[in-house]
Nucleic acid binder design. Structure first.
Lengths: 353, 353
DNA sequence: CTGAAAGCGCTTACAG
DNA sequence: CTGAAAGCGCTTACAG
């Protein structure tokens, strides 16, 4: 009495009826369990493939407690600005998760809500098996919240007080800025400025430390000066003003390290506007290697942070964490220097050619 | 006999027990139904808020048949390349969906699978309530598949054979390239080349049509020539060779329209390498307004396609479609011209200054 | 206005 | 090796 089933809903029930088997058996056959007669299994697998049967994800979630989703709390930026790394980050994360049979959920924050509300809802609703967080602050309440929950999470970046048990992957900004400062010292620069940001972000702290370390290790430490300057990250006007002030000083720096490429671009632009020649009068080194860096003359020297690969590492890490196969908890990814045209030897002082 | 409940799982059951109410009533109170005593409702709402109760999403999905998810089939690009618009697209889509109480699921394609397999699984598993598709081909099997299913979908772009019932939002590339060609004609250009792509994408077709239309409407139509050239979209070397050939011709074009900014950048670069001055010897107009356009000298004239806003429109559209409040089905977004330095009057022929 | 029951589509012990 | 039953956590008719 095999009825011809109309091609309605592709549920287990339909499939079981078509095959004259119980739902139980069909489910087991599809799940790859060993205790199913191979003849039965083949029939089931064949029928499932033919009908493009895919288990209902909600039902599966409900019973297994696993959603197969990883949430990314989306760090939104207000309209005129956009995150130059977001596309690569999501591409890297998405493809690594797909390779591990997981999907990525983007949890954006609507105007009416806060990031914490979104995070809370995402976690409490059991929507996701794990969470990825970016843009980590020196003290980050999101991290604290996640620590207090059972849910696995990986952060891109770390807090200043980050714990042994925290699971993070970060770009080694300290090493990069250490290297950049050493490079400038070796090129004879003695007045170096670091354009940093006012926001309480860990990466700022870490990068500043790299520069300080390099300066402290300088052989001619008494002849070398470092000044730090802080601008609101997304206030270009303020940054511009700061740079202009800095470059108008009688004893202006011969090299500026910029915390990000965005800042470096502003420095370069202002320097040009003031008639300074880069790199002859002023060296500039940025960080990030945004697309503009390669085409702006004379080519912005900066560090590439391999966003896509780093995001892929994060994807694998979070799945490892969910599956309990975690070895390492913390990992620094080395950025690499992209030497282009904005850095060079310090100008000779007092004896202009 | 109100027991003190341990702060274990935040399920409806726990909440109901704490309040000495039935699960049914608690659910109804939270759902905002009218037939619940207001005193009861207040108690329930208060307790739920206090305990940060969030309904289990899988259970909700299973019973309502709605997931609250919108899927974006991620158009992955192989490693050296990356989509310059992806970040903005996802930001715009994500935030508009969040405003409408939906989340975005990124369905990436793992190396071992095809886009169609991913799409099929996503749709058949009931994972999402709607789908967003980008990079639409002239004939697109993904679109055909979705048409054959009940599921709502919106495409960014359209097929060449797109139907009345299809739901798409596209940038008006025809209008933009029409305007660009008219501009070049008005500047006296008579030999114009269009660098297009070899792939069967609708946007290519549409943009070419805009140029043709403008040329056909030229008053001095007999003096004007248009040549079309095709390069593999992601083969920069091929593109470079093509441009070089084109510009070495005795009767080389005085203006090149590039289908995308990526191509425009290559054209600009090759022109510079050959000692041609842009825009004096050659005008170039691109499309897309990628970040490089603003900083590459002398500033790439191009069209901005407002990716983020367009993606936001798509977000609202797909939710409208799910909620059945759809008015319009198709919509063209007007890109706007960003006049920078790469276009200018045609060089005088035969009488060099 | 409130509660007990049924059921969404699966998976996982538990019997046979 | 296969099937009937229970249950994941909700919502929605159906009674009272």
């Amino acid at each position: 009495m095999t009825k011809t089933v109309s091609p309605e809903k592709g549920s287990l029930k339909t499939l079981a009826r078509e095959l004259n088997l119980s739902i139980t058996t069909v489910s087991r056959a599809l799940g790859g369990y060993s205790d199913v007669a191979s003849a039965t299994r083949e029939r089931v697998v064949e029928a499932a493939a033919r009908r493009h049967y895919v288990p209902n994800s909600a039902a599966k979630m409900l019973v297994t407690g696993r959603s197969g989703y990883i949430g990314l709390l989306l760090p939104l930026m207000n309209e005129p600005f956009s995150d130059p790394f977001l596309g690569d980050f999501i591409a890297g994360l998405g493809e690594s998760l797909a390779a591990r049979q997981h999907d990525l959920v983007i949890n954006a924050v609507a105007p009416s809500q806060t990031e914490m509300q979104v995070l809370r809802r995402t976690v409490e609703s059991g929507q996701v098996d794990g969470i990825v967080l970016t843009r980590i602050g020196e003290n980050d309440e999101r991290v604290e919240f996640l620590r207090s929950r059972r849910i696995p999470f990986v952060t891109h970046g770390r807090t200043l007080t980050s714990k042994e048990s925290d699971n993070w992957i970060d770009t080694d900004g300290e090493q990069a800025f250490f290297a950049a400062a050493e490079l400038l010292l070796s090129l004879g620069h003695q007045r170096i400025a670091l354009m940093s940001i006012a926001e309480q972000m860990t990466f700022r702290h870490v990068r500043e430390r790299g520069v300080s370390r390099a300066l402290q290790g300088a052989t001619n430490i008494d002849d070398v000066s470092l000044t730090l300057h802080y601008t609101q990250r997304f206030d270009q006007d303020q940054c511009r003003r700061l740079v202009r002030e800095l470059l108008t000083q009688p004893q202006r720096p011969t090299a500026i390290l910029a915390l990000t490429d965005d800042i470096a671009l502003i420095v370069l632009n202002e320097a040009n506007a003031m008639g300074l020649s880069v790199p002859d009068d002023l060296s500039i080194i940025g960080f990030g290697n945004i697309p503009q860096a390669a085409v702006v003359p004379p080519g912005l020297s900066t560090f590439d942070q391999s966003t896509r690969q780093t995001a892929a590492l994060i994807g694998h890490r979070i799945v490892d964490s969910i599956e309990g196969q975690l070895n390492i908890q913390q990992q620094l990814v080395q950025p690499f220097f992209v030497a282009r045209g904005t850095h060079g030897p310090a100008p000779h002082k007092g004896c202009p050619a």
